[in-house]
Design a protein around this nucleic acid. Structure first.
Lengths: 339, 339
DNA sequence: TAACCGTACTATAACGTTTTAGCGGTTATA
DNA sequence: TATAACCGCTAAAACGTTATAGTACGGTTA
């Protein structure tokens, strides 16, 4: 049940394995293999449906044509869609993807890096967790191309593709203000990672620019590791505890989803009783009644950038870090229009 | 920048690579390596953080500790969630996952099988496309364990994990009947794969059992490759063309999602004007107002079964095919209650 | 005619591991 | 006293590639 190897072809063609390797790697000209022999080898390889054993090739060349994709949660719509784009794009270059979810847990992330490392992946696309900078730096030091996504470490040089979180949050908040909402809360995560900081900053600055004084009581930070019940309870508690609240900005898509659920179970009317905007788009937001206003990430563009940067680095490593910040799109829907 | 190899350890310990290999593979006793040497090797390996090169190991043993996961669309909630479960479960056995999406396109699926094959994955979890049986049989013949999911080929023996589509559809339809709906349509796919046939059969049989005559005009089959516009247009056309329609059963989650969108754009009230049940659960169904009744698949259970069957076959191949049919759960929500 | 050159290949080593066969020495068995 | 068995370990081959160095041979140059 073994596959066809280069030796089988060599035997049938009456040449050495070396010659076969040269021909099949397109080095026939360079290595002065005659057209005759070259053609013959091609033909036999075709007939036998020869496919090089990637393990052997990887062992010899050190290149596995595999990239490691580390996301927060592959079951999450945002990351799943991204995984699809990455799969598609990588395929164009002949690369395959090994994936893993961190659950935003640094230990899990370290474990994933470790596994991918000794599986010799050529490069990484990583949604980093909190304290992963040391490990990432080490990997970079070892010459492995890494492109970060969704977030990055401001103090550490790296390639990354992110969105303009600050501007997105600013635009979303500004939109609420323009619609006449004035006591606007934000529900975000306890994470102190850059993308969440930027979103909070955008929210704050938009309020200030509108002459609205910011208020710590309107900022709710929730930990990552609650279950559905936990999120709903916390959000309900927060929303009801805050007098005069008339709008809320959810800083991630899952918070938005829990938020909607919470608001509805309170019996409030989205739009009229409380304006709602969420970060990230989602089928749910589009189909909900009323549909939910959001700042959407350009998923395909993110994926394309990630892979293209990685491929560039794989082929000719540079010293300059490629850092892409993509714009977000405010998609206005009824959830923020009925003040 | 090379990693630590068995040779490095051997050198430091003053023994041969063979001895190191024996010790590190837990064969110290069996190969009569002294405790002294054994301990020393362990210690050095630990200190150097030795991790075996999986490529080399794979080349030698023929086992890559990698499984190939072929789904219809990794961006789809159902498959993404499943991918997560598979990742989790496989990890417990030390396996990693290479994934790929077929888009339900047989040619893409064949390509994926090909790639995974020459990447020497040890086993496969596959959501098969229409004419993939030949390729799958061939792979089985080559001794590669394969577990099918979501659907299977009735005429071809194989391991599989599916849900009881017939009963699920039957229960859903029966539920609508009991709620007083009587002119019940089904929107399904043109696919003639077994899972869709079973669902249609369940729908038909439930109607017959209730003494309702079935009617071809109430069955709408849509192709897979429409875009969002296309689905919405087709569904709207169908729903409006059918006089007296009072309920509809959507046979997949994406059809359910498009269905909701279509019904709403027609201005109809879900529940009162038209009862709705969908196959598969989804956050959208839970959060929609009114929330949508559905038959939910036990995702974790499916994933666990898939991986555990695969692992069993990987360790000791049997000749008996393991075929698991899991029950579906009817989750009753307001969309089917207001006749 | 010896030195050199170009052509068309090939032998060999190496990547890091696992596995098989075996080695030199001591001890037990017939 | 010959030999079989055991002990603790190692040499070498193999997995399928690719890269380096080299070879044999005919032709050209000086």
């Amino acid at each position: 049940m073994k596959g066809i190897s280069i030796k089988d072809i060599a035997k049938q063609a009456g040449v050495s394995p070396t010659t076969v390797s040269f021909v099949l790697n397109g080095k026939a000209k360079e290595k002065r293999i005659s057209d005759q022999v070259s053609k013959k080898i091609q033909k036999i390889a075709g007939k036998l449906k020869y496919k090089p054993n990637q393990l052997a090739r990887g062992l010899r060349t050190g290149k596995t044509k595999t990239i490691g994709l580390i996301v927060e949660d592959i079951a999450n719509n945002f990351f799943a869609t991204l995984a699809k784009v990455v799969e598609d794009e990588a395929d164009k270059y002949g690369y395959k993807v090994l994936y893993g979810s961190t659950e935003d847990n640094t230990e899990k992330a370290k474990g994933l890096l470790e596994v991918l490392k000794y599986r010799q992946v050529d490069g990484y696309i990583i949604t980093p967790t909190k304290n992963l900078d040391k490990e990432i730096e080490q990997l970079q030091g070892a010459g492995k191309p890494i492109v970060l996504m969704d977030r990055y470490f401001p103090q550490m040089p790296s390639h990354y593709v992110v969105v303009d979180n600050y501007k997105g949050a600013y635009t979303a908040t500004e939109h609420l203000v323009k619609q006449g909402y004035s006591k606007i809360a934000i529900v975000t995560t306890t994470s102190d990672q850059v993308q969440m900081k930027d979103r909070l900053q955008g929210y704050n600055d938009a309020l200030k620019a509108a002459g609205i004084t910011t208020n710590k009581a309107l900022v709710k930070k929730l930990p990552f590791d609650l279950d559905r019940e936990g999120f709903n309870n916390e959000i309900k508690k927060f929303l009801t505890a805050t007098k005069g609240l008339d709008a809320v900005f959810f800083a991630t898509n899952y918070l938005g989803i829990y938020g909607i659920e919470s608001i509805r179970s309170l019996g409030w009317t989205i739009g009229a009783d409380i304006g709602v905007v969420s970060f990230d788009d989602h089928d749910i937001f589009r189909l909900h009644s009323p549909a939910i206003t959001c700042v959407a990430q350009p998923l395909r563009e993110i994926g394309e950038n990630l892979v293209s940067i990685l491929m560039k680095e794989l082929n000719q490593p540079t010293t300059t870090m490629q850092q892409v910040v993509l714009p977000l799109e405010l998609i206005i829907r009824p959830s923020s229009l009925h003040k």
